[in-house]
Nucleic acid binder design. Structure first.
Lengths: 207, 207, 207, 207
DNA sequence: TATGAATGAGGGTTCATTCAT
DNA sequence: AATGAATGAACCCTCATTCAT
């Protein structure tokens, strides 16, 4: 009992620091977030952070791993599931928007420090990114094979279009620190992204 | 005469430092690019940088201003010009892709340090970003008014879709340091973006 | 009974830590040997070290005391014993070489951290060193008085010569972490030291 | 002119820091001597030390290199010179004693941080030490070959005896921070070392 | 203009020591 | 006795910025 309760405590403190790091890195960016900021935010002493994480880089990696783990799990679920492309893409969109609601800092960091930052980009981090692109591209390509998506445009390009749309919605919300108000707004955004991606922005003549 | 030639010299040296800063910030990011790196890259002593720019922040602002100036000029030209939406959007896409070809560092910095970075974001920098969004949105909204774009989706959302596509194409190229090979590839990318944005990714039944 | 068995246990744990400290200090030096290293080496938690030793300095002192105690006991035995100088010096040499065989860490620490280190030198530690020198000098001086050693050179200088030889043999072995292989090598070394110290390095004419 | 005078200034400041480092490392040892101590001792600001030396380790290496350079030069001179063994050994002794008079900190550091410290011992530093031993041994071995030194004891052991004597004289002086008073004391010490090393400590019967 | 020496405020990390359990 | 979480004072090093020349 003692051991497991201590283990739980250890986990808790780790999570405490983890969340404080999320907040501070979101607020100041990885570079400007000082270890002392994180410690203060977590309400603990300076040195204790180093009890739980080897160094700043490791703490950052822990955050990245959590992000990628969640995303890859979702992509695996989606890939394996028996959905058509529209549903799969819909799930992906939902995942991003849901995560943005439940863990805005996480998404913020993904957008600002991972998705677009060459600065923090070590090669293995780039690999994660490529894997993410590739998995999404696989979904798109499968849609093309099943004749659900146009084939006159490379799957890769369609992927850019799709993820670009998702990211920019998120980016803008991140940039202005916008909150998604309730489920309705989220659904409207999700629907818009999917709609335009699938059917385009052009006014149909027959409308 | 002397004066003006001195002025030209001053301009030249300023430009020299400016370009060196572009390269270094692209390579290392704003935070990790040291003033001494920039000076070395420019082939001058690092004290001299301070003759031409008050400090690192100012140097960065100079870069941002040049970027925004170019972009706003383009948007102004496009807005005032007598084009339909498709052409206007096409011009915007071309501007980004052309600039990426002629000044890849500039676009790189826009993507990594401006577009997505909350870290470097002072409020006046955010204002520039909002203005950029607003101008693009105006183009889109005008397209809706002229019945060329669907109206069941907010102009803002369509704007996100459009810019998201552009940005993600650029981002990916930036991320892997990809060069655009010749005009054909550029045209194919431009066409893809516009095509999908306007007509969607869905395979048409009657095709 | 309980008490004494507890006392024995206490002694045991103390000895455990002591030996671990010996090994780690030998390996890393006093400064670089962390309390946590010592605890890990001893197989206990690092808080526990502080139950047995007040602090790192005290732990170090415990080591020094053990060293000096052994050495002073030997010197006392030798001084009081009814040996001639040659035998006395021979015993001193043997003591060092024997200890190097049985407790190489101890000798290592003596050489690297005590004998030559002004860094770890508090004044009372210097006193020990002076006492050691003085006791050895007494042996030498007695040899001079008994007309067994030359008197045209100060006893102090002869002492330096003698101890210098012993120390350098040990130092070199310590430096390259050399093991003394068997009793023969030890005897040869001991003989060499004594021989050269007493009779010099010069080739005798009559040889 | 300007350049060379600047170069001289640079050298001067470097030497200033070098000497301050010598003093502080002598006083506190390499580990306890802080970079800030050295800067203060040199009368300059903290960061300037890093203008002249990359880091603490480099500063230490600069000291070591100066020491070994001097010593190896002496040994080369001695080896190549047309002296007999006695004179050669005499020159080596003189070098140590002279250096101790002119640069006591240097010798102190050699004794405390190099000669006996396994802590600061990287492999290339050990190599220097071995080279030093080997060069001295070569002198001794040559003496044996020319029938000037006894051959019944390994050259290596004789070398230990010789260097041990020198080092212990120096060590003791270093330990008690003793100054060599004038040339006479130095000569007496030098004579004692050589005398005892060559002819031994034993009282000659025929005296 | 131009140089690069000089400054010093940080910030990351280590580790002896204390303390609650 | 025993654990290891918690603390925080040091200490190394970086780098934007200033300044004498």
């Amino acid at each position: 009992m003692k051991k497991s309760s201590a283990a739980i405590k250890k986990r808790d403190k780790e999570a405490l620091i983890f969340r404080a790091a999320l907040r501070m890195i979101k607020e100041k960016g990885f570079h400007k977030a000082r270890m002392s900021d994180i410690a203060r935010e977590a309400g603990i002493s300076y040195g204790l952070v180093y009890h739980y994480f080897n160094n700043k880089e490791d703490l950052f990696d822990a955050i990245l791993n959590r992000w990628w783990d969640g995303l890859f799990r979702l992509l695996a679920d989606v890939s394996e599931g028996d959905y058509d492309v529209h549903q799969k893409l819909s799930h992906i969109i939902d995942y991003f928007l849901d995560t943005y609601q439940s863990e805005p800092e996480m998404v913020n960091i993904f957008i600002t420090e991972i998705s677009r930052s060459t600065t923090n980009l070590t090669s293995y981090r780039l690999d994660y990114f490529k894997k993410f692109m590739a998995l999404t591209e696989a979904v798109i390509a499968e849609g093309q094979k099943r004749n659900l998506l146009r084939t006159d445009i490379k799957a890769r390009y369609l992927t850019y279009m799709f993820l670009g749309a998702v990211e920019t919605f998120l980016s803008t919300m991140v940039l202005v620190d916008q909150k998604i108000k309730g489920g309705t707004q989220k659904e409207r955004i999700a629907k818009s992204i999917l709609e335009v991606f699938l059917n385009g922005a052009k006014k149909q003549k027959t409308n």
